[in-house]
């Protein structure tokens, strides 16, 4: 399903917090999540045990799911992190953090790991 991705940063995903708690495990717990409206959750035939594949022309990642009434339908929120960075892009001199068109699907695969992404950056 096509949706709009907005990145954001909340207390739970703040960098200071990431770093004081700090290991890759806690990053993997807090950051790879997509927050959806419960109606979209239903539309995508999701259950709590499933994950989400979020992709666009820039890349693809698999993240966990959270529901929130406050998110408007058709929008998916993700915290700014190496995970969301797979989907963001830039234009001229500016990075685009909001209103990114993405394709969202349910998935059974495990969440993309920290090392996987770091390796993809390194090997390039």
């Amino acid at each position: 399903m096509e949706m709009i991705l907005n990145t954001m940063r909340m207390v739970d995903h703040d960098q200071a917090r990431e770093h004081s708690l700090g290991d890759e495990k806690s990053l993997e717990e807090h950051l790879p999540i997509g927050i959806l409206n419960p109606k979209d959750f239903k539309k995508l035939n999701l259950t709590r045990s499933l994950h989400l594949t979020v992709s666009n022309k820039n890349g693809q990642i698999i993240v966990g799911i959270k529901e929130d009434e406050g998110v408007p339908q058709g929008t998916i929120l993700m915290p700014v992190s190496i995970w969301a960075n797979q989907l963001t892009s830039f234009e001229k001199n500016e990075i685009i953090y909001k209103n990114i068109t993405v394709n969202v699907e349910a998935s059974r695969d495990p969440i993309t790991s920290f090392n996987q992404i770091i390796n993809s950056i390194k090997s390039n």
């Binding site: 820039n58 963001t88 830039f90």
Partner: peptide, 12 residues
């Protein structure tokens, strides 16, 4: 921590 806030293509 630029790797955490720059798009992948820039990080690479």
């Amino acid at each position: 921590d630029p790797i955490s806030h720059l798009p992948l293509s820039l990080s690479q």
